[in-house]
Design a protein around this nucleic acid. Structure first.
Length: 408
RNA sequence: GGGGAGGUUCCCGAGCGGCCAAAGGGGGCAGACUGUAAAUCUGCUGUCUACGACUUCGAUGGUUCGAAUCCAUCUCUCCCCA
């Protein structure tokens, strides 16, 4: 079974520039391909992870991944799928983000012995000569055509700066550069990158008469079409400092039934017959599938040990016997509770609520529980008597927990 | 460069001198129901030392007993013309 078939079967593929040719090339030889990551944040998130999964599949099949960090394109900002102007970032931030991306990517992709390459387009984009660039690359693009591209449509109403308009050329030029430097023949990306990818494919074909291909993948979305991997705090980050393994696990444990199969296929390496079997489970049985999904993804990203801990914590909390496992915990000192501490202050301190007003509302709605019983008094004081073995489990609603550990 | 329209709470979007912490929707949170899901229904959704006080309607100054609402300057965005 070829990689193409695998990618197709698992539901990654959305669009394709030259399907039959590409299929053939992928089967007959090992090629270099690239995926670009613009350093828009200090960590990758699950959205990126779909791309990373594809890279892993491709690498397994013997193709050489090129991870392209957008140190240059990040300075321009991709307007695709954006309704507003991107925040312009400083060069220092961009470089730092690139560094983080690189470290994270190397956990999934094997960069040893030239099995994969990591490059930064800052290396060639930042020193471009404007006139030269316009003459070589700019002349190949038709503004009329560009304007009809889907990615600019939404911006036609809200406004699009010339800076961002150039993004497509930059990305296209990347492909050309990688084609020339590393014989890179294929660009992959999320479906929002379709027009940018097409631009590159065309450019390589026109200027170098090269055989270049493009392919896009489904964006991670729920069955209802909304973006996936969003939490109240923002994205689901790969960096465990930004999204703890527990939070991460919890997210997948809680997804909608309809999304289980899709996520298993895209975000785990489980064999497809297993994926189908799990996805077909009905009613409460699908919880089994959700547990597996959550465990597998967490394992991929944070390692088996942390995934197990997260799983134990989750099980313990919801199995009603009150056993406390590896819940996110906060350390506080004994002195804090000597004279008692107001419940609202405690909840703010551990980060379960954002303000006292928020806490008061929750209390009125029976949303705050300690030791399994709802608190009804705003003035409830938490004292050392509430602790057992130096631990106290705080609960907010049904699903949010935090544990306080007394130290010292 | 000229002309016009705008910037409202997490988002969209009403309000256009006091009745405005600001309609409505979305999102979020909680409760009921359930399978820890979805859908549905209900409540909440600026902060606090809380029947009151304080901070918010692009920014800064001003007019007024009183401003999100009026005036001036600034700033940003969009549209039309060149």
């Amino acid at each position: 079974m070829s990689v193409y078939d695998i990618l197709e079967e698992r539901g990654y593929i959305e669009q394709n520039t030259h399907e039959t040719e590409l299929r053939e090339v992928l089967e007959k030889k090992n090629i270099s391909f690239y995926i670009g990551f613009d350093p828009t944040a200090d960590s990758l998130h699950v959205g990126h992870f779909v791309q990373v999964m594809v890279m892993m599949h491709m690498q397994k099949a013997g193709h050489r991944p090129i991870a392209l960090l957008g140190g240059g394109t990040g300075m321009v900002g991709d307007p695709s799928g954006r309704s507003d102007l991107r925040q312009v970032m400083t060069t220092a931030t961009i470089d730092q983000n690139c560094e983080n991306f690189k470290n994270q990517l190397s956990r999934f992709i094997d960069f040893s012995e030239g099995k994969a390459i990591c490059v930064n387009n800052a290396d060639w984009l930042r020193d471009l000569k404007y006139i030269d660039f316009l003459r070589e690359v700019g002349s190949q693009f038709s503004v009329n055509r560009m304007l009809t591209a889907e990615c600019f449509k939404s911006r036609m109403e809200h406004g699009l700066s010339f800076l961002e308009f150039n993004y497509m050329l930059m990305q296209s030029y990347d492909f050309l550069e990688l084609y020339r430097r590393y014989d890179c023949q294929l660009q992959l990306g999320g479906n929002d990158q379709w027009s940018n990818i097409l631009g590159g494919v065309d450019l390589v074909r026109r200027l170098d008469q090269g055989q270049a291909f493009g392919m896009t993948f489904k964006l991670l979305a729920t069955s209802e079409g909304t973006k996936m991997g969003k939490t109240a705090k923002g994205a689901l980050w790969i960096d465990e400092e930004k999204t703890t393994p527990y939070e991460f696990y919890h997210y997948w444990r809680n997804i909608a039934d309809a999304d289980v199969e899709n996520c298993l296929a895209l975000l785990t390496f489980l064999p497809m017959d297993e994926v189908h079997r799990l996805g077909a489970l009905q009613d409460s049985k699908i919880n089994e599938a959700k547990e597996i999904l959550a465990f597998e993804i967490t394992k991929l990203i944070h390692g088996e040990e942390k995934a197990k801990k997260a799983e134990e914590a989750e099980r313990a909390l919801f199995s009603k016997n009150g056993a406390v496992g590896e819940v996110p915990s906060v350390e506080m000192s004994e002195a804090d509770f000597k004279d008692g501490m107001n419940i609202l202050d405690v909840y703010i301190k551990v980060g379960l609520i954002s303000s006292k007003g928020d806490g008061r509302r929750l209390i009125q709605q029976n949303g705050i529980k300690i030791k399994g019983t709802a608190i009804t008094d705003f003035n409830y004081m938490i004292t050392l008597d509430d602790f057992e073995d130096g631990k106290l489990l705080l609960q907010k609603g049904k699903k949010a927990f935090k544990q306080i550990m007394i130290q010292g």
